[in-house]
């Protein structure tokens, strides 16, 4: 396994760069996922439920803590 990984790099050392870029992406992506998931899901519950209430605006709005706005 180790040989299978090292042999292509020994043949073409520049291969390390794209592999590093891929690793970098995965690390940052994982960090981003952790960061996003550090927010409590309740913070998004209202917006996540938007499609379920689109024909019952009055009822839904009454349940909200804030009213909707016009830009």
């Amino acid at each position: 396994m180790k040989q299978a990984f090292l042999a292509p790099i020994a043949q073409s050392p520049l291969l390390l760069l794209p592999l590093s870029a891929l690793l970098l992406f995965l690390v940052v992506f994982a960090a981003w996922v952790i960061r996003t998931y550090s927010k409590r899901p309740e913070a998004y519950a209202e917006i996540a439920a938007l499609p379920l209430h689109d024909d019952a605006g009055q009822r839904r709005v009454d349940q909200r803590t804030e009213v909707t706005h016009v830009d």
Binding site: P13, L17, S20, A21, L24, V27, V28, A31, R35, R40
Partner: peptide, 29 residues
């Protein structure tokens, strides 16, 4: 050059990772 590339990749990774870490620490519920 390739050495500079490796350095920049590492630096970008550190900036991205640290930035996200700091933001997570600073979050306000």
């Amino acid at each position: 050059n390739p050495v500079g590339t490796a350095g920049l990749l590492l630096l970008a990774g550190i900036v991205g990772f640290t930035g996200i870490f700091v933001l997570t620490l600073m979050k306000s519920p």
